[in-house]
Write a protein that binds this DNA or RNA. Structure first.
Length: 269
DNA sequence: CCTAGACCCTGTACGC
DNA sequence: TGCGTACAGGGTCTAG
């Protein structure tokens, strides 16, 4: 589910409820997520939250003794509840705050993670990640240089976290449509101008989606329970067989590494 | 190094 | 109504 815009939307939603408050304790109802929930989280007691940050698709809660690293996986979401309410089936983790509010983590598929790291620079999950797409490090020069010699189709290439983080299945298809580049083009076949356009487009698409609160397809919700509204602006994702919003040609789909890719065979070259 | 595939898990949509 | 199949926003691991 959550790509960078959805994780950033979650970060912005939870930050004002956490920073300045204390975690009284955590309630872990099911510790069997992508990896077992770290023992340090299970045994948390009375810790202030110093900051709420994001790296790639990971949320980072800064505590005095270390960091809670949260990943939403495919189906995870976070809600801020005004008070303790009875948990539903897939409500696996609560953080009980000193304000009485509850940060509740729901994740039907349990591909997400709740990990503890005393020192982020030593964190396995954060090591070897590529640049943030909205940072200056993700530039035309960078993307073009990285593309040289790469035969991989550009779509799955963009989803490689070592190249750039945060671009998942939705935004890879959407960005390539807006940039007018076919998803099957080999990365090494991009011209410098195309790489530059792609960088600019990825940033613009991600920023626009963040403005809209992300994309809700099925289970993603903003932390106040509202859906993300970028779904209404999707150009190609999930629209196989429907007319292109620009030229009217039927949107086509192909598979790359078991993931669906959508594109317009006329607008993209 | 690169690339493709299987796999983790549950829910939902669809064809019969 | 039921059953079997395919598919779903991510990431890791293995094999070639």
């Amino acid at each position: 589910m959550p790509e960078l815009p959805e994780v950033e939307t979650s970060r912005r939603g939870i930050e004002p409820h956490l920073v300045g408050a204390r975690i009284v304790h955590a309630i872990v109802r099911n510790e069997r997520l992508r990896w077992p929930v770290s023992q340090e989280i299970i045994s948390l007691s009375d810790q202030p939250v110093l900051s709420v940050q994001r790296r790639a698709k990971y949320l980072l809660l800064e505590l005095p003794a270390g960091w809670i690293i949260i990943h939403l996986g495919m189906s995870g979401s976070l809600r801020v509840l005004p008070e303790a309410l009875p948990p539903a089936k897939h409500d696996h983790v609560d953080l009980v705050m000193s304000t009485g509010k509850i940060l509740r983590y729901t994740d039907p598929r349990r591909f997400g993670a709740w990990l503890w790291s005393r020192d982020l620079t030593a964190s396995n999950v954060l090591a070897h990640l590529g640049p943030e797409p909205l940072s200056e490090a993700f530039s035309a020069d960078y993307l073009f240089a990285k593309s040289r010699g790469r035969r991989t189709p550009v779509k799955p290439w963009l989803m490689d976290n070592k190249l750039v983080v945060g671009v998942g299945n939705i935004y890879a298809s959407e960005s390539l449509f807006v940039a007018g580049i076919l998803p099957d083009r080999a990365a090494m076949a991009l011209s410098y101008e195309e790489a530059a356009l792609l960088v600019k487009t990825i940033k613009a698409v991600l920023l626009r989606s963040i403005e809209q609160g992300g994309t809700t397809l099925r289970d993603f919700l903003q932390t106040d329970g509202k859906p993300g509204y970028f779904a209404q602006e999707l150009q190609v994702y999930g629209r196989g067989g429907e007319p292109c919003r620009v030229c009217g040609a039927p949107i086509e789909s192909v598979k790359h590494a078991q993931r669906s890719t959508f594109f317009c065979p006329v607008c993209q070259k």
